[in-house]
Amino acid sequence: MSISDATVAVSEELAARDDMIVCRGVDKWFGDFQALSGITATIKEQEIVVVLGPSGSGKSTWIRCINRLEAHQSGQIIVDGIELTNDLRNIEKIRSEVGMVFQQFNLFPHLTVIDNITLAPIWVRRKSRPEAEEQALSLLERVGIPEQAQKFPGQLSGGQQQRVAIARALAMEPRVMLFDEPTSALDPEMIKEVLDVMEELARSGMTMMVVTHEMGFAREVADRIIFMEEGEIVEVGTPHHFFTEPAEERTKLFLSQVL
């Protein structure tokens, strides 16, 4: 979906043309608890960014702020040149540009796999049903489960469900994909099938922001790694830099615990 010229004009003031996600001084509180403090980061188009950090460090909160599942209280979040404010129209626009994959898959249990995927394209993108179904089938092909189209989510394995969830997000033809711990709820033997799909997606040029504990994926696929702790960004760097010569003590401590 193209953005209107007026918005583009604004966007050039807010961010450079190939900046997909820009966060400036983002703060977020849950009551008295500050979940995010002064998050400033930029994610370029076609970049794969992996966010690492101990649990409770605010990774998921940050990624959920980017499509407004959580509202931030101060600072700026600009996605594809559109700033996230309380304006519903901006939120709608950003949500249709940003696909999201959840830890718990969150498929719609009362709809078949194909209906899960086609629902939003038909009612939000206003596609015709045959067109949407054709697209859904090719997406299922892409994530490797075309034969499951008529089943219900409850009849699939966790890995298959997560791949359907990825297909559902892709069906909206997003410019950015957000992954919130996509493999954390999976049995070990199913993790690889999901990571394979994500790798393929990364190679195809999608802009991706991934919160995960999969160090292997971070090392192989990421362009940059952002390390967070206690709601702050501690260190940013390439995987090589991050895994071999981390600068910060806290990063070293974290790596010594997980590797």
């Binding site: 599942l69 709608e92 949500r95 959840f102 969150n106 009362h110």
Partner: peptide
């Protein structure tokens, strides 16, 4: 209805009415 259902509906861009009609009501009536 779990919160995840609302979040997933929002994330794919459904409006409040669409979310209610397609996602929330069918499951809650059942």
């Amino acid at each position: 209805i779990r919160r995840g259902q609302y979040e997933a509906s929002d994330a794919v861009g459904l409006s409040t009415v669409q979310r209610t009609v397609f996602i929330v009501l069918p499951q809650s009536l059942r």
